[in-house]
Design a protein around this nucleic acid. Structure first.
Length: 347
DNA sequence: CACCGCTTTCCTGCTT
DNA sequence: CAAGCAGGAAAGCGGT
């Protein structure tokens, strides 16, 4: 089991090594496994001597292990190397403490989003099982591996299976893993069901029949404005859990969310980029992916770039954003925005 | 409970 | 033609 997993890891199915871009405290169980597998490979450690149980821990749990404990579990050579590596990773991310709680939240969201989009095989794979059209997000993979009979449910580290939208069934996903960036794929437009232009990225497609019926239903029945949230939508989510455990951070607005992604370049590769750092001009590279993240943050599983962009356009009036004419997906921070200037963040 | 700010959703028309 | 942009209209949601 573990060796199979490690084999998959080392064979590149999960290539990308995103754990390198995340604090060990944010590592999921999958990140920990990936990290271990990298060291197994480099030390020629015999993975068969490891049990899955001893590797099955998330980042926070891993961080509580002492060097001796690691050497006990993984042996003197691998254990020592893992311990040293962990200390290096921890030190690296302790340096990034300038970020406030909101930024941390955004980055955690990004980390989790990246983790889960890019480790589909570690997610729950369901075969022919449904619990109603809205109770489950299923991704029907129609790629060349002939996984058409499988549907995949991303499993969020916080147990939120609603990470991706109902409308996501209109979008296309895949586990692109060799892009050189975080491997972010585009979420296709809900209207078109197609991808954005970048051919490097693609998502496995969803059943077209499903798309059509759901879409038509929406067209016929849906009144204007935002529909009321159902209790189901709120249940068992990461944010609900957060709310119970600690007060949700207040005042995180869309423009702040965007800003936080932009000022953490090592975490947003492929998502957004600065066009003119000093002027505050930026561009969406993976617009639908950013919209999905925003939707996740707002517990809204049907967020799209179309809707996100409408909210962005409202910022023009308030001078939080300025128009950039003639350039698609390009926006500029306005005089009522803050926290993105190089001086402000100590660059 | 009313009000308000901030979205969210939908839509039509226009531009790229 | 598709994708993106613009902005009106209506409504939800959380905070006060």
């Amino acid at each position: 089991m573990l060796s199979d997993l490690l084999h998959k890891l080392t064979c590149g199915l999960f290539a990308g090594e995103w754990y390198r871009h995340i604090s060990p405290l944010c590592w999921s169980t999958e990140n920990v496994l990936e990290w271990i597998s990298d060291h197994v490979e480099s030390t020629n450690f015999d993975a068969r001597t490891l049990s899955l149980a001893c590797c099955s821990m998330d980042g926070p749990a891993l961080c509580t292990m002492t060097r001796d404990q690691m050497m006990g579990v993984f042996g003197p050579q691998l254990g020592l190397q893992l311990h040293q590596s962990l200390q290096e990773h921890k030190a690296k991310y302790e340096m990034q403490s300038f970020s406030g709680p909101e930024l941390n939240e955004t980055c955690q969201l990004l980390d989790h989003f990246l983790d889960n989009l890019n480790f589909p095989l570690l997610s729950t794979i369901r075969i022919g099982q449904t619990e109603g059209p809205e109770s489950r997000r299923e991704f029907d993979f129609r790629d060349d591996n002939d996984l058409s009979s499988l549907s995949l449910e991303p499993v969020m580290p916080w147990g939120d299976s609603e990470y991706l939208s109902d409308n996501q069934s209109d979008s296309e996903f895949s586990s692109s893993s060799n892009s050189g960036t975080f491997g972010f794929s585009n979420l296709g437009s809900p209207e078109s069901g197609s991808c954005e232009s970048d051919p490097e990225f693609s998502y496995p497609s969803i059943s077209k029949v499903h798309i059509k019926t759901e879409k038509e239903e929406c067209r016929q029945k849906r009144p204007r404005g935002r529909p009321p949230k159902t209790s189901r939508e709120n249940s068992n989510s990461f944010y609900e859990t957060q709310k119970k455990n600690k007060h949700a951070p207040r005042g995180t607005h869309l423009w702040e969310f965007i800003r936080d992604i932009l000022i953490h370049p090592e975490r947003n590769q492929g998502l957004m980029k600065w066009e003119d750092r000093r002027e505050g001009v930026f561009k969406f590279l993976k617009s639908e992916a950013v919209a999905q993240m925003w939707g996740q943050k707002k517990k809204n599983s049907s967020m799209t770039y179309e809707k996100l962009s409408r909210a962005m356009r409202y910022y023009y009036k308030r001078d939080i954003l300025e128009r950039v004419d003639g350039r698609r997906l390009v926006y500029k921070f306005g005089k009522n925005s803050s926290g993105w200037k190089m001086e402000e963040i100590g660059m």
